[in-house]
Write a protein that binds this DNA or RNA. Structure first.
Lengths: 237, 237
DNA sequence: ATTCGCAATAATATATGATATTTTTTATTA
DNA sequence: TAATAAAAAATATCATATATTATTGCGAAT
């Protein structure tokens, strides 16, 4: 499984091992992934017994996981009535998009102000990888949607990495994942315009042009929002 | 126990009954309260067995609670090594304060734009109650710190209530609670200036003067931050 | 002597299956 | 059809078993 948003390790020490050490953290990653990528449909009832089979974990362990996801807002918990995948709605998507603008623009500003050589290096690398895969998508190779979205995430992450606020980065990560779920729901690529916007943001950031970078980012998210909203209307059901 | 920040019910239906129905939600409220009000010291190890006695709940239930609180950032979870009360630091406080400014100012703007008669009514009531208790505090009656902070919360909450974004309100609620923990840690009242700022915000909001309201709010939080930072330096340890 | 490494042991966290409550569904009756 | 009662399903909680981490004590090497 390719987990998209680099799962922030629960403790500080960055483990070398790839495998999730505990059943709990493993099921957490898997369920979160399945919600974001639509394998668990919005609004679906999350019956503990069903999950027990699907994820091979005990009820208690699953409840820990679902409580975590409920706190983050990927799951809806109803006292005495169980857990549900967080439903989707146009209103919710709009709120998420506006929040992403608020958080990401703020982080971008500080990050451009404070970014050092390391930051620039990471940014160059991230944009390069994103650009490569975006070209493939343009050519019609749609086989690697998850990898594409991973590079998209890594690029936006690289932009704001130097913002000097772990609290802000953490909040932004969660919001980004929620926004991502909507994008995965409609499964369409915006194509050339989005590519150009990424390039424009990249250039503005390296040129330390905060105003331009923020403007482009804002437009980038708003256009993505409109695109996703339109696609949502065409959705089955 | 007076729980400060009106605990958002896990499901939609607003229950009439005051008592928390499940062991889980009750321990959640209690542990969160104890962290915010410093009864559980920053950095303290949260041993499952110890908590079992203190809160009269089973290990599984406690782990659910701690996982929730870890997601919200009040508890630090270290894989295979247990749970700790989230430590405090000047850096963290500064980040929290800046985030509160970002979120609350944004919500305030929309709220002032969209607020209707209901919103005004709630606001007037909230400010009145806050003002009453602030006067008592000025006179030296320091016996009702929790109630004071509750009214402070309710006032700020009333200001942004009409922002039309549940996602934003939810994020703000968590950040506010984190900010509150630092205030409770130093346990000092800023006095007259804070009272005046509350009044100024109140007036600006009713006059629909967005720019002024945001400016005052920003200053209000920044002054509170400085005040708390200064007091933190004088802390024992 | 002191430090270092390495067992053995104790303490703690993780995970599970079993039980008690509550909600939902089905069946029955007015 | 509506209301109610019994049965089934699902959740919430617990006590216990397993796995991991932390501690202690001992002996060898510096």
């Amino acid at each position: 499984m390719i987990m998209l948003t680099s799962a922030k390790p629960r403790d500080e020490r960055p483990s070398m091992s790839q495998t999730a050490p505990t059943v709990g953290s493993s099921t957490y990653e898997r369920i979160k992934h399945d919600i974001i990528f639509g394998d668990l449909a919005p609004g679906a009832k999350l019956k503990l017994d069903g999950l027990r089979n699907r994820y091979a974990a005990s009820v208690s362990t699953l409840r820990e996981t679902l409580n975590r996801l409920a706190s983050e807002g990927f799951v809806q918990a109803a006292e005495q009535r169980g857990f549900f995948v967080r439903p989707v709605s146009a209103t919710d998507l709009k709120e998420i998009a506006e929040l992403r603008i608020l958080l990401e623009c703020s982080a971008l500003e500080t990050s451009i102000e404070c970014g050092d050589a390391d930051w620039e290096g990471n940014l160059v690398a991230a944009h390069h990888k994103l650009h490569l895969i975006e070209q493939k998508m343009l050519d019609g190779d749609t086989s690697q949607k998850e990898l594409w979205k991973r590079y998209d995430w890594e690029f936006h992450q690289a932009l704001i990495q130097a913002c000097n606020s772990d609290n802000l980065l953490s909040l932004h990560g969660t919001i980004f994942d929620k926004y991502l779920r909507y994008q995965m729901l409609v499964l369409t690529h915006r194509g050339a315009p989005a590519i150009d916007e990424h390039k424009a943001m990249f250039d503005a950031a390296l040129a330390r042009d905060i105003a331009t970078a923020k403007d482009v980012l804002k437009g980038h998210i708003r256009s993505g929002l409109d695109h996703t909203l339109a696609a949502m209307n065409d959705l089955p059901k």
